[in-house]
């Protein structure tokens, strides 16, 4: 069984769990993901690996409560087990040849950006990190980023912590100030990645983005995770589970990806509402 060996609430919405999955822990690299089911008959959800320890067999996942499944996951405690946990899936982030990196994380995407930044640092790379959140209460992983970054910029949308604004502000400031990077890594909500790409584009620096579409099997069977790249003016279909999840930020059709992500919004909202009601009912009965 895949037991939970560590749990920490990073903020009101974001939880970190370490799952005992030795085979996955031995293999997982920055940028890869796992698929889990909380219980038998639950849905399969993909989550990017936030860290892995081959010695202890622990795989770290950091996730935001956005729906019924992540809500159920966030309510598990140390000692509880997951029904299924499979990985590592997808290709690891390509880090070769990068000596000076700009790592940009948005919201819970910082959990995915962190292992990439860490791997870059361990490879002797100079790392500048920009992390952005909606507000002060939602800031996560600041200490971890500061430990591995040569320079760390924090922004919040409402200015309650760090610089006011979105991640594009410090990115633009760094680039227009003459900072030189071999590659930019942007991980976060689609709209944040889209605008980071647009900000970086005039400087012609390669940019990697990490896509997180709806998936079922995660092994290249269902095709649900398909997205479009525009390569030499041609639309090319790719599958995030086997071709990604990392892609060339300049090629990704972000608008299409955003549209596809909304395929089940009604169902998800309903399921989340149901799950919340169940919990409230349970608490009322126990209280």
């Amino acid at each position: 069984m895949y037991s939970i060996i560590y749990k920490k609430r990073l903020n009101d919405f974001v939880t970190e769990l370490h799952i005992h999955a030795p085979l996955v822990a031995k293999k997982a690299k920055a940028g890869q993901f796992i698929i889990l089911r909380v219980t038998e008959d639950a849905e399969r959800i993909p989550l990017t690996v936030a860290g892995a320890d081959a010695q202890t067999g622990a795989v770290s996942i950091i996730f935001q409560t956005v729906g019924a499944t992540t809500l159920a996951l966030s309510r598990l405690e140390v000692g509880d087990s997951l029904s299924d946990f499979v990985g590592p899936l997808g290709k690891p982030t390509e880090l070769d040849g990068v000596k000076r990196a700009l790592v940009v994380g948005g919201g819970v995407g910082c959990a995915i950006a962190l292992p990439i930044a860490r791997a870059l640092k361990e490879a002797g790379c100079r790392v500048i990190s920009v992390i952005g959140f909606r507000s002060r209460e939602l800031v996560i992983l600041e200490r971890e980023f500061s430990e591995i970054s040569d320079e760390l910029h924090i922004v919040t949308d409402d200015g309650s912590y760090g610089q006011r604004g979105n991640v594009c502000l410090p990115v633009e400031a760094l680039l227009s100030g003459g900072a030189v990077f071999d590659r930019v890594f942007a991980i976060g909500p689609l709209v944040m990645m889209k605008y980071t790409v647009l900000t970086v584009k005039p400087y012609e620096i390669p940019i990697t983005v990490s896509m997180n579409p709806i998936m079922i099997d995660g092994t290249g069977m269902c095709g649900g995770c398909r997205l479009s790249l525009i390569e030499d003016g041609r639309r090319v279909m790719k599958f995030a589970c086997v071709d990604g999840p990392d892609f060339d930020g300049y090629a990704v059709d972000f608008d299409e990806a955003a549209s596809r992500l909304g395929a089940y919004t009604d169902f998800e909202r309903h399921a989340y509402g149901e799950a919340c009601n169940l919990i409230k009912k349970g608490e009322a009965q126990n209280g």
């Binding site: 269902c222 095709g223 649900g224 997205l227 279909m237 086997v242 549209s259 909304g262 395929a263």
Partner: peptide, 27 residues
């Protein structure tokens, strides 16, 4: 087993409501 589902390569295959048979049946 067989792998990635084929699509036709016609416009509109990314719209919501377009499934591969594999995805539809797996769901």
């Amino acid at each position: 087993g067989a792998g990635l589902p084929n699509f036709m390569g016609i416009p509109g295959e990314s719209y919501k409501g377009v499934y591969s048979a594999n995805e539809f049946l797996t769901r």
